[in-house]
Nucleic acid binder design. Structure first.
Length: 143
DNA sequence: CTTCTGACA
DNA sequence: TGTCAGAA
């Protein structure tokens, strides 16, 4: 899988982060002061803050927890662990995803070998929100 | 026009 | 946290 989009190259200004997350610019500066978020280092003293994609996600997640009633310190902690979980999942998918194939007449996610010998493949299918898995023998012309 | 810092409510 | 001032 080639990298179609490099999210790490995204750059946002403070007002953009504000509108995208629903968090005021005042809050963003305060959270930074408290050490909850870390905008990119500014060259000059009076230059505008720049935020990367990771920080955008962090802010958005914190906002969600705050809306759920958590206070700033708790929301920050939950954001950190949630971000860690997301990374675990992202790495998993990055390794497991082999492509999409038609199985039983519908799109199925090829999740790779199911058995150690590598003769069976695990597929995941989404039937209108109902997830099910199928193990199929690997075809010879598929090697 | 936008952002920054500091300050007051 | 919102808002405003004065500067960049």
């Amino acid at each position: 899988m080639p990298e179609l989009l490099n999210l790490e190259s995204f750059r946002f200004r403070i007002s953009e982060i504000s509108t995208m997350t629903g968090v005021s610019t005042r809050q963003l500066r305060y959270w930074e002061q408290k050490g909850y978020i870390h905008p990119m280092t500014r060259t000059d003293q009076q230059k505008a803050r720049m935020y990367d994609f990771h920080t955008f996600v962090a802010v958005r997640i914190m906002k969600v927890f705050l809306d759920e009633g958590y206070r700033l310190p708790s929301a920050a902690e939950k954001m950190t662990s949630f971000l860690a979980d997301i990374n675990v999942f992202r790495d998993f998918v990055k390794q497991a995803f082999r492509g999409i194939e038609i199985v039983d007449g519908q799109p199925a996610v090829d999740m790779g070998s199911f058995d150690k010998a590598g003769k069976q493949i695990l597929y995941g299918i989404n039937d209108n929100g109902h997830i099910r898995y199928i193990v199929k023998d690997k075809k010879k012309d598929q090697q």
